[in-house]
């Protein structure tokens, strides 16, 4: 349980390695300032009433793990604008066409806490939407616990009005033979920071973290993920793709951490960026921390403009330059959607 009297951790500053390139003096300070006002927002779901609880279970609902933002984690937990706890028992919940919905409306500042538990044998398709009102700010603490032999497909869509900002601190725990995949996408936000910790706690667990974004103008997308292998014989993949326009900036910090004794782990991390503007900037920090052997871990990152040969191929078939660029940008991101949808 959190000790509410404990002093707050320090606000992230330039010495915080997890905020490298993330302008903590600007964005963290601004967000902390907005947390002083009372929050307004609404968290709703179409999950059956018997699955919904509005109080937390001290045993099941540990706080998510932050990646450099303990200050916001603790402040948001204290704030606790709203709590939504969903426990899904064995069975099928939602489909690709009609997923189970969780909707978060943000009016001004809002700090909800969402805990979803998939019990053994449960299969769930969940669409989580964060909808921002004018100039709003969100700090959302998200925990998804996927018990042994359960399967989660989770899509997170966050949309704003170009002046809003958001921070999602998330934790996805996978038990033995549990499978989880998350696809996140952000549009219309001035600044967003996503921190996702995926924990592989049992043999045969599989985690797929995906993200596809098209930032434009002066938007900032700052994404950090941690693939934490606690148990031997688990598998994780992360693929973060961005198409950058205007003076947008994308920061990606990913880490594969294989704990001692998590032998035979298999992990891959990839960050790919398509640069469409001379003013766009990308910072990529893919990391590996391996403390076990018999592992297969690797990462790759690339940032490049559109391949002129691909452009030439489309242009030579009568497609105008603007359309050709749009087709290639769509094709670039399509890999992420296909991976999310594959059986």
């Amino acid at each position: 349980m959190m000790n509410k009297d404990a002093p707050l951790p320090e606000l992230p500053d330039r010495l915080n390695e997890n905020w490298r390139y993330g302008r903590p003096h600007q964005f963290a300070t601004e967000l902390a300032g907005r947390m002083d006002g009372r929050g307004k927002g609404k968290l709703t779901t179409n999950a059956p009433q018997e699955c919904i609880l509005h109080t937390l279970s001290p045993d099941a609902d540990a706080l998510p793990l932050s990646i450099g933002s303990d200050y916001f984690l603790r402040r948001a937990a204290q704030e606790q604008s709203d709590v939504l706890r969903i426990v899904l028992p064995k069975g099928e919940w939602g489909t690709e066409e009609a997923p189970l919905r969780i909707r978060c409306h943000v009016d001004s500042f809002y700090a909800p806490r969402l805990c979803v538990e998939l019990q053994p044998g449960c299969r769930a398709h969940i669409l989580e939407e964060h909808l921002h009102g004018s100039n709003s700010a969100l700090v959302c603490l998200r925990s998804y616990t996927v018990h042994p032999n359960a399967e989660l497909r989770l899509e997170l869509r966050e949309t704003g009005d170009n002046a809003s900002c958001a921070m999602n601190i998330s934790r996805i725990q996978c038990g033995e033979n549990a499978h989880a995949r998350q696809l996140s996408s952000y549009s219309g936000l001035a600044w967003v920071r996503e921190e996702t910790t995926g924990e592989l706690c049992g043999a045969g667990a599989e985690l797929l973290l995906l993200s596809a974004n098209r930032p434009e103008k002066g938007q900032w997308i700052d994404q950090r993920c941690l693939q934490l292998h606690h148990a031997a014989g688990a598998r994780s993949r992360a693929l973060y793709k961005n198409v950058l326009r205007g003076a947008s900036t994308c920061i990606f910090g990913g880490n594969i951490r294989v704990e001692p004794n998590a032998h035979e782990s298999d992990a891959y991390l990839s960050n790919l960026n398509l640069m469409l503007s001379p003013e766009a900037t990308v910072h990529s920090l893919p990391q590996l921390e391996i403390m076990a052997d018999r592992v297969r871990c690797s990462h790759g990152t690339a940032s490049a403009p559109i391949d002129p040969e691909q452009l030439f191929y489309l242009r030579s078939r009568g497609i105008g330059e603007t359309d050709a660029r749009a087709i290639l940008a769509d094709a670039f991101l399509n890999e992420v959607y296909l991976l999310f949808r594959q059986p």
Partner: peptide, 24 residues
């Protein structure tokens, strides 16, 4: 134990930067 901590910053749309790492 082995660790990899690269940092790659690219500005603009004319340069190509690639990074790959593996542990075996």
């Amino acid at each position: 134990r082995t660790d990899t901590y690269p940092a790659i910053s690219v500005h603009g749309n004319s340069s190509g930067v690639q990074h790959e790492a593996s542990v075996s």
